[in-house]
Amino acid sequence: MNMTRRALVTGGISGIGAATAARLRSDGIEVITADISADADVQVDVSDPESVAALRERVGAVNILVNSAGIVGPSTALVDTDLAAWRRTFAVNADGTFLMCRAFAPAMCDDGWGRIVNLASIAAKDGNPCQSSYSASKAAVIALTKSLGKELATTGVLVNAVAPAAVASPMNSDTDPAILERSRSLTPMARIGRPEEIAELICWLTSPAVSFSTGAVYDASGGRASY
């Protein structure tokens, strides 16, 4: 395919985001990492509409968008979950995905080609106990992906999601070890995933090789996913 591909990866300096950025660059794709950290190519708070608008103004159009920025949120029983912490988890995971898609999808549609990959989670399907805000916010990402995929189905812009099981990444550094062990124990492969394994699937979904799939959810769960 003779076209210049330009990618924007949120949460791009660590974990799955960093692995995805590196993998895309290995294919000769121009990659811009966006993160709340100053170590990224550009800084952004995906939960803040003004910050996302400023990012769009600075970066311009891209034809690949990977929404990898996310937080785990509180690891507490639902009845003990603080409302502010619940809302913060949704603000980053669900609102952030919405705001980024809203900002960058129009130019892709104008160009007639684009790939958007949103990071969901196996928790969105299974519902992790003591992670209600994370599970629910990632379920929102799945529904958003399905809806937007249908909206843009005839534009040349494909929108898909990846739903990993637990991955060894900085995002999980503060996750309750018992929750991580539960995820590992439920995984038939009996291990935690690696960021580079998830990045391979993401990069395939951003490629021209994928042409007849949109609004879909791809599992990367070591066999854990049952539907």
Results as ranks from 00 to 15, higher is better:
Glu50Lys: 12
Thr20Gly: 08
Leu8Lys: 06
Val66Pro: 02
Arg58Thr: 09
Ile64Pro: 11
Ala54Thr: 05
Arg23Glu: 10
Leu8Cys: 07
Val44Ala: 03
Gly11Met: 00
Arg6Ala: 08
Ser68Phe: 05
Ala53Met: 07
Ile64Gly: 12
Gly11His: 08
Ser37Asp: 13
Ile16Phe: 11
Ile32Met: 14
Ala54Phe: 04
Val9Ser: 07
Asp39Ser: 15
Leu8Ile: 10
Arg58Val: 09
Gln43Thr: 15
Ala54Trp: 02
Val44Asp: 02
Ala38Gly: 10
Leu24Ala: 06
Arg56Met: 00
Gly15Tyr: 07
Asp45Arg: 00
Val44Glu: 01
Ala61Asn: 14
Asp27Glu: 15
Ala19Glu: 04
Glu50Phe: 13
Ala7Leu: 02
Ala53Tyr: 11
Arg56Gly: 06
Arg56Glu: 06
Leu65Cys: 09
Ala18Glu: 05
Val31Cys: 01
Asn67Ile: 07
Asp27Val: 00
Ser47Gln: 02
Ala19Gln: 11
Asp41Ile: 13
Ala18Met: 14
Gly28Cys: 07
Glu50Gly: 12
Ala40Asp: 07
Val42Met: 13
Gly60Leu: 11
Arg6Cys: 14
Asp48Leu: 14
Thr20Ser: 08
Ile29Ser: 06
Ser14Ile: 01
Val42His: 15
Asp39Gly: 15
Gly15Met: 04
Ala21Asp: 03
Arg56Ile: 00
Leu55Met: 06
Ala61Gln: 14
Gly15Phe: 05
Thr10Asn: 02
Arg23Asn: 08
Ala54Val: 12
Val9His: 02
Asp45Ser: 01
Val52Ile: 03
Glu57Ser: 14
Ala34Thr: 01
Asp27Arg: 09
Ser14Ala: 15
Val44Met: 09
Arg25Cys: 03
Val42Pro: 00
Ser68Glu: 03
Ala61Glu: 11
Ser51Val: 02
Glu30Phe: 05
Val66Met: 10
Leu8Gln: 03
Leu55Asp: 03
Ser51Tyr: 02
Asp39Asn: 08
Gly11Cys: 00
Leu24Met: 11
Leu65Gly: 10
Leu8Ser: 10
Glu57Asp: 15
Leu65Glu: 09
Asp35Ile: 08
Asp35Lys: 01
Ala19Asn: 09
Ala18Tyr: 13
Arg58Cys: 13
Ser37Arg: 02
Ser47Leu: 01
Ala34Tyr: 04
Asp41Gln: 02
Asp48Cys: 04
Val46Arg: 05
Ile36Ala: 08
Arg6Pro: 14
Ser47Ala: 14
Asp27Thr: 11
Val31Pro: 03
Thr20His: 06
Ser37Trp: 08
